[in-house]
Design a protein around this nucleic acid. Structure first.
Lengths: 192, 192
DNA sequence: CCACCAGACGCGACTTCTTCGCATTAAGCT
DNA sequence: AGCTTAATGCGAAGAAGTCGCGTCTGGTGG
């Protein structure tokens, strides 16, 4: 389901998709993202360009699919013993990954695809899943847990807004400030 | 400064830029955004394609410039007599404009350009200016005024996050909910 | 007021990307 | 195993993007 509707998951279509995705990752590492073209990727993947155009439509959609794959979390959030510690650790890591040059590029590429394909929504779902897991764990400890919607509004959204719209204004302390905002003022507000 | 460095503001360069921008707006209205191509725009503007490529680099940068122009507010925020009323009115209008099909397209186009050109930052600056104006007016009335940074974090960022990443989850009441969140709980939290 | 200079534009050839129709092959199903 | 459907390979045609060179505009100094 990463590309278009993969009606035959077990066969050649799956191999082609995998091969093309791998070609994108390899060539991006070798030549840089700006050097990628559909004919180049197709040649590396061992398929014809028309196959790529038929399945993905254009380079943007393909890069959007690959970017979403790379933004998928590879592990559940680490357990630090308390809601606050878990949230702070997750937020700091999230901010670092997303604000890096590579992270920003992936986010932009993911947003670039057709919104109807839901690639952007999947990015948000990844964050929501991680936050949900933290919340469930905290609830198991008996802690009061903020709504996932609230966490997305207060923590994730401001981070993403800064990453996308204000690339210069993202300090290290900002992530902690956001967590403090959603958990109550145990940490002083950020001096601006 | 909307395109690249306009070293000669009064001369032919300015006319070319204006003509190209107008051609983009006209063709977008006539044929739809997806039908736009550099040769088409150049022909309408009465210039050669190579001129467009030299000045903007590619279609994305050109569309990014035009999109930012369209996102520029055309008037200072309306005065409704109180901070809360001003903020609510501005937020509702902002949410409506930005979440419309056209608004989302402009935002995406603006983000699509090279971040180094600052088109994305300019979008944020527009919102900040409007909020600043509302704040200055409220301070003149003797009202307590939240920081512009806070307003961006609590009101603008969540709106933009939903528009970009969660196109389906944007209700009419949500804007009011955000204003209530930043001004204190005079309005009940949004039922989710 | 005139000549000069730097930058921007027009033009055209060339390369590369993109689209499209048709034949072929592979996967799923009975 | 045979059939049906869908995806791929191939190649040609069309469109887009790149580049070098000559020309023109507009600002600058004499």
């Amino acid at each position: 389901m990463s590309a278009r509707a993969t009606t035959r998951p077990g066969g050649r279509s799956a191999r082609v998709q995998q091969s093309v995705h791998q070609a994108v990752r390899d060539l991006e590492a070798e030549l840089g993202r700006d050097a990628l073209t559909v004919p180049l990727i197709a040649a590396r993947a061992g398929v014809t360009p028309s196959t790529v155009y038929r399945r993905w439509g254009d380079l943007r959609e393909l890069l959007s699919d690959v970017a979403v794959e790379r933004l998928r979390p590879d592990a559940p959030p680490a357990d630090h013993g308390s809601l606050r510690a878990d949230l702070e650790a997750w937020t700091v890591q999230f901010a670092e990954e997303m604000s890096s040059t590579a992270g920003r590029t992936y986010i932009r590429d993911a947003l670039l695809g057709d919104p109807e394909h839901g690639n952007a929504a999947r990015c948000s779902d990844y964050a929501a899943e991680q936050l949900k897991a933290i919340g469930v764990r905290a609830a198991g400890r008996g802690e009061a847990v903020p709504d996932v919607e609230t966490l997305l509004d207060v923590v994730v959204a401001p981070l993403m807004y800064r990453i996308l719209f204000r690339p210069s204004d993202l300090s290290a302390a900002y992530a902690g400030h956001l967590v403090a905002a959603v958990l109550g003022r145990a940490t002083p507000p950020l001096a601006t």
